[in-house]
Design a protein around this nucleic acid. Structure first.
Lengths: 338, 338
DNA sequence: CTGAAAGCGCTTACAG
DNA sequence: CTGAAAGCGCTTACAG
């Protein structure tokens, strides 16, 4: 019969061994005789004993908790990443303490402080930036931090992104090869590294081709802003023949808006997104997009983080993972394009 | 200058007070003289001290951690709920430890055990069922559990759902009033209470009207299954004039499939979903659906849980929140319908 | 292999 | 109000 919160001392008493012996039986790298192990397991089962993770954390200094800071959960990219992250971490014996972040830099700092109070072993910050002061504090506290899907200019934090500059270039080249000459860019939020890098890549390839964008607006990673920009862009007499949108989440809004204006993506105008969230392949959108390989981004994030936790080594790593352009129906495909 | 992991003893030394005094200054209901408070705060600031939440948890028996079990993060309903839940809990000084659940009942049991090892103060299980054995263990351990968006037949767990039976009835009445006479139901997973209740409500209203459903299939809350069912349903010579789909997530797949067959929802056939996820109002789908009031469901969940935690009282509460039919373009609207 | 003991960083009666 | 002390439930040297 299990009872309320059994302790190792009670198990020890029932098993007729010391409390240390019980602890050893439940400690992975233990040393205990078969006889002891058996007696203890039996007693533990009878009482329904399980070690108190918090007590273990206190003495070992390892909580096996990873703090995860997220925002933008409406953008399907993040729930997907969250699920993968959680699965990967769970498989390695870690769990995620979740913090939903305000989108301002100082909002984030308060959250980080909270996180550190929980003695997390490491922190993953998804789609948020961080003050260099905060980064320094985490480093001083010896807590590894990795930025997921966000770059960092300042001090040495690890981060994992896809190759956003290259991706932006690729989209520009694709659109240009398709014969488009009035290409607008509804950019990702220019306050974020991803937004800036994609735009910079896009512009650099345009520039090399001697082209200027038809228009350049900051979509703020926001559907409303993206929709309104689209309306503005397409209501004049001269309208773009293609729109490169800073992420899929906005691209869906762009497509909805275009259709409301009787413009069909892939026929009247080409639309390209960024991310390749699951929804991108749904029939209603069939969106051509630059895929961010979320699986590989997650794997890299987890292995960097756990590596730093387990070795104590904290040389910041910067991983950039190559993306791939996924061809679907929302944009004209150049002849002979590979 | 902050240094690595400052303790209350170090603050005490610098401030020239006892370690207990430091603790009191950082304990909400403390009693300390202004002088002490000031000296301690000063010293703490200088050293960058913050109480170790884990240590506090151990002695107080309150971790201020809520375990959240989630599955189905692809269904937009859950990320939305997760974000709201996290915000509400953060505002009250709690944080979420997240567990992604396998969808089987015994998978869930292992996860719950993990959860309890972390000494969580309470558990929210979203969209999962739980064995009665597990429920009993949580109760014995004195950990309140509330089921979010899932009912429970067995023993006394608290749960919060929307009025699924009534919702199913409402949809049937709506479709019938619209003159549909060949109404199919691609049901929510019949292994879940939500799936069953919606279907039962739907059937009861049909029955009262002397109608039989055109077809009844279990969509398993799965896009692929829903799409395939739709194809089957609509490829014969006789096809339904309306489809009630067990949730929005599947309804999007149903609509995509219909369009691929050149059937336009709202004109050639009516489609009604369940949930009203944000995506439901996007232009591409414009889905008529029975709204689950996620805000109110979250509020109820949080207040039940925190109430039980704070009072120690654990009488199971069962809350059912009324939903509303949201009229959009995917289904014909009966004349004079209110 | 095993037990007694110290200690992780706190909170909380208990005296004063 | 304040300090000394016990204790939360563990892990981990340290002897044996």
């Amino acid at each position: 019969m299990a009872q309320v919160k059994v302790t190792s001392a009670e198990v020890a008493r029932l098993a007729g061994v010391s409390q240390s012996a019980v602890s050893r039986v439940f400690t992975p790298g233990a040393s205990a005789s078969k006889k002891t192990v058996q007696k203890v397991r039996e007693a533990a089962d009878k009482l329904g004993y399980r070690p108190n993770v918090l007590a273990r954390a206190m003495v070992s200094g390892k909580s096996r908790i990873i703090g995860l800071v997220v925002a933008y959960l409406e953008n399907q990219f993040y729930p997907v990443a969250l699920e993968l992250l959680s699965n990967a971490l769970q498989a390695r014996g870690y769990h995620i303490l979740i913090f939903t972040a305000p989108n301002s830099t100082d909002g984030i700092d308060g959250v980080m402080q909270d996180l550190m109070d929980y003695q997390v072993d490491g922190i993953i910050a998804a789609s948020v930036s961080m003050s260099s002061d905060l980064a320094r504090r985490a480093r001083q506290a010896g807590i590894p931090v990795v930025l997921f899907n966000r770059g960092q200019d300042g001090p040495g934090l690890s981060n994992v992104t896809s190759a956003n500059h290259a991706g932006g270039r690729r989209v520009a080249q694709f659109l240009l090869a398709g014969g488009h000459r009035r290409i607008a860019h509804v950019a990702g939020w220019q306050g974020s590294s991803t937004g800036r890098d994609r735009q910079a890549g896009f512009l650099s390839a345009m520039d090399e081709a001697g082209q200027r964008p038809f228009a350049l607006v900051d979509g703020m990673y926001n559907r409303k802003v993206a929709a309104q920009s689209t309306r503005l862009l397409c209501s004049g007499s001269a309208r773009p023949d293609a729109i490169f949108v800073g992420n899929d989440h906005m691209a869906f809004a762009v497509i909805d808006t275009l259709r409301a204006m009787r413009l069909e993506p892939g026929q009247d105008i080409s639309v390209v997104g960024y991310d390749d969230v699951p929804m991108a392949c749904w029939g209603a959108y069939d969106l051509t997009t630059l895929r961010q390989p979320v699986n590989r981004m997650v794997d890299a994030t987890v292995s960097i983080l756990l590596d730093q936790i387990e070795t104590g080594e904290s040389r910041p790593a910067r991983i950039e993972i190559e993306g791939e352009l996924i061809l679907r129906g929302s944009a004209r495909i150049p002849e002979g394009w590979t």
